[in-house]
Structure formats: C-alpha cells, structure tokens
C-alpha cells in the first residue's frame, strides 16, 4: 500500500538494532552492498549528471540558473506550479477529511469497503485515469452529453486542456494519499474522548473542533506535505490533460529535455524543483518527526 508506506517514509528513521545475534560489520556491508551500488550507479549518477549538465552545458558557469530563475516566463511557470500544487492540496484536504472521518467512525466491514474504494483509484494506472478523464470531459464526453441532454447548456463546454481539468485529475490521483494519511491518525483516537466531550455538554461541532480536529493534526500535516510534494513534480496528468497555458515545471523540464534538447536548462530547472522538494521535506519532515515524538 504505497500511501501508508510513503507516509512512513516521510516519518523516517528507526534506530538500527544492536541485536547480539545480528550480522557482523563485514556481513552487513556485504549484504547491503548490491543495493547501495545499484542506487549509486542508476540513481545518484543520473542526478549528478543533471547537476553537471546544469553547470557545464554549453560552457562552465551559472548561466543556466540565471536563465531559469531570471526569466519572467520560467518564474511564471514556477509560480503556476506552486499555486496549482497548493490548490490541489487544499481540495484534497477538504474532500479527503470527511472520508477519513467516516472511515474511522463506521463498523469494520463498512470501513473495509470504504478503504477498497479509496485504494481502487490508487491501483488504476495514472495513464488509464488520464484517458478516463478525456472520455468524461471531452466535447462529446459524458459531462457535455449530460448537460446538453438536460438542456442546461446549448453548446458543449470546453473543459479538456484547461487548468481546471489538470486540477481535477491531479486531485483525483493524490486524494487517496491524503485520506489514508489522515485516517491512519484518526483511527488511533479513542472514541471515548468524543463521548466524554458530549457528556460534558459539548455540541457535536464543538467536540469536532476542540477534540477530534486537534488530535488529527499530525495526519493532516503529513498528508498535506505528501500531496503538495507529489503535486509539484506531476508530469503525466498535466502533459495529457493540460494545454499550452498550463505548462508546469515538470512538463517544461520534459519539453527542454526531449524537444528543445537544452539539457543545461533542463538540469537547472530540475535542480530547482529538487531543492524546493528537499527543503520542504527537510523543514516540515523534521517538524512532523518532532510532533510524532511529542
């Protein structure tokens, strides 16, 4: 279940046990070596190559970073990417919280059924879902046909290749991560607390605001962080459902790599995206870990 795993990954770090029956240092190094070497060759080297390209192509210097961060167009795309990621994150939170809340309040069987409904989209390939949104949103698509049939509109609406389509589809992809992240915290809150608040005369809303919501904050934080980071780097959905006016960081990087063949600029843009992501994980990941311990 990728979502809960990702959640765990953001929480990070478990101490290495010093079990006396464990492997010796030499055995440990031998056993870990293949994975580490593979990651160095096929992950660290490619990322270093990107950094190298950004600094040396076509010649040594920072000109690619000056171009990436000094151009109004690229800054606009960066701003648009951050804005879109923020909108998607807020939407996912607003849509996801009630689902997580319901999942934590219903009987085991219903909760299991709901969990399956949340996991089904996660297990459906992103490309399959992008295609499905085209079927739903296109000129003769499901939504237009329905609205025309009901007489709500006369002309089919143009929904595909707009920012709205990208936001809708991206929210759909990331929503399960938000739901599972919040649910993992909500289910640990004892139901007695609700009853206690009600007995003390708190209204259902007051109970939610003063008891449930504050206790679920760690789940909200990690869900928000995860969805925001994933949305920043989204490629497939904006590439297929967006138009020229919805060019985002990821699609711009892709374009510079395969169409313009400007690997220096692609490298500088990638490093920018990478640094933003790492800063977010570093800053807020740390906050989350402290919260978790406290």
């Amino acid at each position: 279940m990728p979502a809960s795993l990702q959640h765990e990954a953001l929480m990070l770090a478990q101490p290495v046990s010093d079990d006396p029956r464990g492997f010796s240092l030499r055995q440990s190094l031998l056993l870990a070596a293949p994975a580490v070497l593979c990651l160095l060759a096929f992950f660290v080297v490619p990322l270093s190559t990107l950094v190298e390209q950004s600094l040396t192509s076509p010649r040594l210097g920072l000109q690619n970073y000056v171009r990436a961060l000094g151009s109004d167009l690229y800054l606009l795309i960066l701003w648009r990417t951050i804005r879109l990621a923020a909108i998607v994150t807020v939407l996912a939170l607003l849509l996801g919280y009630p689902v997580a809340l319901t999942m934590s309040r219903v009987s085991g069987r219903v909760a299991g059924l709901l969990a399956i409904c949340v996991l089904i989209p996660l297990w459906t390939a992103v490309l399959v879902r992008a295609y499905a949104w085209i079927v739903i949103l296109q000129r003769q698509g499901l939504v237009n046909e329905a609205l025309l049939g009901l007489g709500v509109i006369r002309e089919p609406l143009r929904m595909l290749y707009t920012e709205g389509a990208v936001i809708l589809a991206t929210t759909h992809v990331l929503l399960p991560f938000m739901i599972l992240s919040i649910f993992s915290v909500l289910r640990t809150i004892p139901p007695d607390l609700d009853r206690a608040a009600a007995n003390l005369g708190a209204s259902a809303f007051a109970t939610f605001r003063h008891v449930t919501l504050p206790l679920s904050l760690p789940g909200i934080y990690s869900g928000v962080l995860m969805v925001f980071i994933l949305a920043l780097g989204f490629y497939i959905t904006p590439a297929l459902l967006g138009g020229p006016e919805t060019l985002l960081m990821a699609t711009l990087i892709g374009q510079q790599t395969t169409e313009t063949l400007d690997w220096g600029l692609a490298g500088a843009l990638s490093v920018t995206l990478l640094v933003i992501t790492l800063l977010l994980v570093g800053l807020f990941g740390r906050v989350l870990r402290l919260e978790g311990k406290g």
Partner: peptide, 13 residues
C-alpha cells in the same frame, strides 16, 4: 520522495 520527472530526465541523459 523525489519527483519522478527529475529521476526520469537524469536517467534519460
């Protein structure tokens, strides 16, 4: 955790 697009472009080059 890192954006797949960055990994993909690095691997591509």
């Amino acid at each position: 955790i890192l954006p797949h697009i960055v990994t993909a472009v690095g691997l591509y080059i």
